[in-house]
Each structure stands twice: as structure tokens, then as C-alpha cells.
């Protein structure tokens, strides 16, 4: 894998996160390099989404550091993190239901100048990745199906022209046909040059598209390895891939 030689883009070092008195993350460390798809897998409540929320500045860790392209972003507010190039498709999609599809995509580029050639290029790119969004551009996002809303959430995140894309449970609640389609697109996005940090409960699919993976258990990293190695790992197979 050539990507393993890429420079470290995101370095999370021993972060501890609390919700009130609940110790949600007990020292998570992980790295994403240029060109990679890295996946975080684990059961409900293991701390996957909290890790993402810490990275994009929605919830600040009490200790530990997060560095992005060498810069400390541990306590940066969310809008600055977005401006630095980390963009997220949140869990549960969170499209703006009463805005049209196009307006949602425009919101994705909120931090950028509208109407520039780059902006139009990105809109074209999103429409090419998700032709369905072009068809429905003027439709209210709330009236889309779950799979289409997921596509919209991902497209919206891409409109920020991210240097790192965070995807939180993109397959959640989708029909199997859509799940496969979504993962194909994740691979395509990555092939076009955007590194992806992918949080997934669907460990099987996630490990198939990812180059490396971290297994989270109750707020700690239980395993960290190549995706292929994790797929072969007995423990992972039993716990997450549904084999006995």
C-alpha cells in the first residue's frame, strides 16, 4: 500500500473526553495519513462519534492533543476547524430539511466564496458523484429518502473542499443496496484525493474499503492495524464480523 508512506495529516494523541462526569474517551490516539481511508469501528457507546466530535471541535477534550497538518487544533471552535479543511457528514445525516438540495450543498460551502470557478467545479464534482442530487436539486431535502439524504450529507461535506473528510455512520439505517453504493462512493472520493476517516458499525464493509482500522472499546483503542490484518483477526471476526 503506497498510502502508508503518506505524511501524517491528522494526529490524535491520548485525548480524554468527558460528558459531565462520564469519562467517555480514556486516552484515544490515532493517525490519518494523506491518501488513506482509516476506519474507526466498535460497538455502540465505544466512543467512535465522540472521537469525531472532538476532532471537528464540537466537543473539546479535557486533555491530550489533536494536530492537523502539524497545527494544534485541540481547542479550536468548530467553524475554524471547518475552515482549516476538516469537513464532516454527521451521524444521522442532519440535512437541513426545509432547504432545497442545492441550498444544502451551498451551506456546505458556507466558509467559501460562492460563484467562483472552484465552487462551480466542486458542485459539478458532487453532481457527478451523486447524479441523483442533480435530479433533485430543487427538491426539499426533507422529502428525500434516507439513502438520498446520506448522499446529500456527504455531498454537502465535500462542498467545503475538505483536506480530510469525516464520515459518521454513513450506512446507518440504509437499505443494503444503498450501503454498497455509499461505500463505492467513499472509495471514489478517496481515489480523487481526499483522505477519509470513516466511523462505522458495519465493520465488514468498513474494513473492506479502508487501508487501516482502529477498534474502539469503551473509550480506548483495543486494536490498531492494517484493515486486512483486522479482517483476519480472530477477536474482530467474533465481535464485529458476526462469525463464531
Amino acid at each position: 500500500m503506497s498510502s502508508e508512506n503518506g505524511a501524517a495529516l491528522l494526529e490524535v494523541d491520548d485525548i480524554h473526553v468527558y460528558y459531565g462526569t462520564i469519562h467517555a474517551l480514556k486516552g484515544i490516539s490515532l493517525t490519518v495519513r494523506e491518501g488513506e481511508i482509516v476506519t474507526l469501528i466498535g460497538a455502540n457507546g465505544a466512543g467512535k462519534s465522540t472521537t469525531l466530535r472532538s476532532i471537528n471541535g464540537l466537543h473539546h477534550p479535557r486533555s491530550g492533543t489533536i494536530r492537523f497538518r502539524g497545527e494544534d487544533i485541540t481547542n479550536r471552535p468548530a467553524h475554524e476547524v471547518v475552515r482549516m479543511g476538516i469537513s464532516q457528514s454527521p451521524e444521522g445525516r442532519h440535512v437541513f430539511p426545509r432547504m432545497s438540495v442545492l441550498e444544502n450543498l451551498e451551506m456546505g460551502a458556507y466558509q467559501r466564496e460562492k460563484g467562483t470557478p472552484e465552487y462551480k467545479e466542486d458542485l459539478e464534482r458532487v453532481y457527478t458523484l451523486f447524479p441523483r442530487l442533480r435530479e433533485r436539486a430543487s427538491q426539499k431535502a426533507g422529502t428525500l429518502s434516507g439513502g438520498e439524504q446520506q448522499m446529500l450529507a456527504m455531498g454537502r461535506a465535500l462542498m467545503a473542499r475538505p483536506r480530510l473528510l469525516l464520515l459518521d455512520e454513513p450506512s446507518m439505517g440504509l437499505a443494503p443496496i444503498f450501503v454498497e453504493r455509499i461505500f463505492e462512493i467513499v472509495v471514489e472520493i478517496n481515489r480523487q484525493g481526499t483522505p477519509v476517516l470513516l466511523v462505522e458499525q458495519n465493520a465488514l464493509m468498513a474494513l473492506e474499503v479502508a487501508s487501516r482500522g482502529y477498534v474502539l472499546e469503551t473509550g480506548t483503542v483495543a486494536l490498531a492495524d492494517d484493515a486486512a490484518a483486522l479482517r483476519r483477526n480472530e477477536q474482530v471476526r467474533k465481535a464485529y464480523l458476526g462469525e463464531d
Binding site: 471552535p77 468548530a78 467553524h79 471547518v82 475552515r83 437541513f96 451551506m107 458556507y110 467545503a160
Partner: peptide
């Protein structure tokens, strides 16, 4: 304006708005 759009976004979904970089 951009601010007007941000108000709509905040009103509709704060989590999403902040994930889009709306302060």
C-alpha cells in the same frame, strides 16, 4: 445575505450548521 442563510441553518439544525462551519 450569507448571514440570513446562516440564521435559517441554525434554526433548522444547530448540529448541522456548526458542522458546516457556521459559528
Amino acid at each position: 445575505s450569507k448571514m440570513g442563510r446562516a440564521w435559517v441553518a441554525v434554526r433548522e439544525d444547530e448540529v448541522a450548521a456548526s458542522a458546516m462551519g457556521v459559528p
